[in-house]
Nucleic acid binder design. Structure first.
Lengths: 279, 279
DNA sequence: GGTAGACTCGCACACTGTACGACAGTCTCG
DNA sequence: CGAGACTGTCGTACAGTGTGCGAGTCTACC
């Protein structure tokens, strides 16, 4: 019975006003906010500071933006816009470009860690990115709902890998030390924390024994996981090899409907199963 | 030259005081905070409210906890503690348990979306979880630094998949509608947003054409990606089959040092390469 | 000239995290 | 027993926050 409560809202779900050219503009506000965020971080962004920076009163901003969350949605879409994706590349190439691009964008704006994946990502830039990746998956022969699954998996891995790394980087940059030095400074702390976990400690030592700087090390780690994921997706059953010509429509209503989608092998342990509410 | 700036701090990097038994205790505060968060969400947690809830003044809490961030770190570790992992199961079983368990914990406390992966996860429960997964990877024959890579990949995928889903669920629950109804209500909005993206729209329709409830659908999606990732990790080269006996120490200083770790195949596009600062 | 809308902004409100210092209870040592 | 010292609580205060409201200004068009 859909009682109202607090319906879903987003900048992108209401049409904007903005007719005049003079004075403030939404774009100007978003740009200034992005600058401020890049320079001073998320905590430093207040409507008053932002207003002052563009020579306007704090509450003037509320004409162009409904509230602070909307502003942040706009800024986030700007960040998604930084992800460059080739238009008609192979599926692996596109997936790699999206993953590396998204990771790069997040790392370039580490203050966004608490926002990415949390605010709804339905702005034009976010959609364009998803669309590119989706087209690539389609070209790669994924069928029906599996297209969405593949897209989601690549994005999920990327977000989950980039977020903690960006968070780490921003505490490092706040400390004023270089990543290498920060890593070195952390050694005694980590040794103490991991004291009760010999394997953890061993792997940590292994990790830091190489002379790579931590930035490169995380890069290699990201590559490793991404390759594994793409390989795994490539090997999923139910795909259809598509050369260059689209079509060859084998009617695939996917396993989800027909056989109630019990995968041939599931990673799901018993206790995690959730109730399937809808018949 | 490691100038101080603002050194890394965390609840777990300083030893706690707490001697007496009477009055407030840190555990009590953390429990109350968790309750409050579960009931009313992240925005509703203020030190004053929390104090009032346990019959204490707001500033009394600061004796037991250095600041709000520390409190949140403690609460987050409580959540990691909800992830049940089998002690000596196979690598796939353990990875599945960690992934599904972590996902479940995040979904059970959707307010944590902006915190997980952002606050340092170095509490005892977080470490125990990592350690379990790490041991499993080791048993599975991953070598040297690859152990860490595999662990990181599984955690990254899980965080990245669970976070947006939890965020979605919390806007749904705020709207007061059931997930199914919310999904239905969103249809026109999404149709309009995705108007310029025919493929996106088609996949969305495909997605919602099945009669599964959205909760189950995301579950299946998670399973799909996780299986792909685990398969891909299984197929990584450089692993060593280990039966039950540990040992057989083939000296594996891993590729990272020796051959400067240029993987046989990389997902990294040219433009994403970052400077390798350390020689 | 008048009026309707597009904007800007000062004020005010309720609320935040937390530094500080005053106070009370309890433990330890002489 | 008495004197500190330490543990723990809390009221007050400060500097800030997001943003609702209404009064004001500017511009375009009838």
């Amino acid at each position: 019975m859909t009682m109202p409560g607090k319906p879903f809202t987003s900048v992108w779900t209401r049409e904007r006003k903005e007719r005049r050219e003079q004075g403030l503009s939404r774009d100007q506000i978003v740009r200034a906010a992005l600058d401020l965020l890049d320079e001073e971080g998320l905590d430093a962004l207040s409507m008053r500071k932002l207003g002052a920076r563009i020579g306007a009163g704090a509450t003037s901003l509320y004409w162009h933006v409904a509230n602070k969350d909307e502003l942040l949605e706009l800024v986030m879409d700007e960040i998604y816009g930084e992800v460059r994706t080739p238009a008609d590349a192979s599926w692996r190439e596109t997936a790699g470009a999206v993953a590396w691009g998204l990771r790069g964008a997040i790392l370039a704006h580490p203050w966004c860690v608490g926002l990415v994946g949390v605010l709804p990502s339905i702005g034009p830039n976010a959609l364009t990115m998803s669309d590119r990746l989706l087209k690539a998956c389609k070209r790669a022969g994924f069928q029906g709902i599996d297209i969405d699954f593949a897209v989601s998996a690549v994005i999920a891995y990327t977000l989950g890998a980039a977020t903690p790394e960006a968070a780490w980087r921003s505490v490092v940059s706040r400390s004023g030390a270089s990543p290498c030095d920060a890593q070195t400074d952390m050694v005694p702390t980590i040794e103490r924390l991991a004291a009760g976990y010999p394997d953890l400690l061993e792997t940590y030592r292994e990790y830091s024994s190489h002379n790579y700087d931590p930035l490169t090390a995380r890069q290699v780690a990201f590559d490793y996981g991404l390759l594994a994921l793409l390989d795994g997706l490539d090997a999923r059953p139910g795909r259809q090899e598509v050369k260059e010509h689209e079509g060859t429509s084998r009617t695939e209503t996917t396993r989800m409907t027909e056989k109630s989608r019990t995968p041939e092998r599931s990673s799901m342990p018993e206790r995690s199963r959730m109730p399937r509410t809808r018949p």
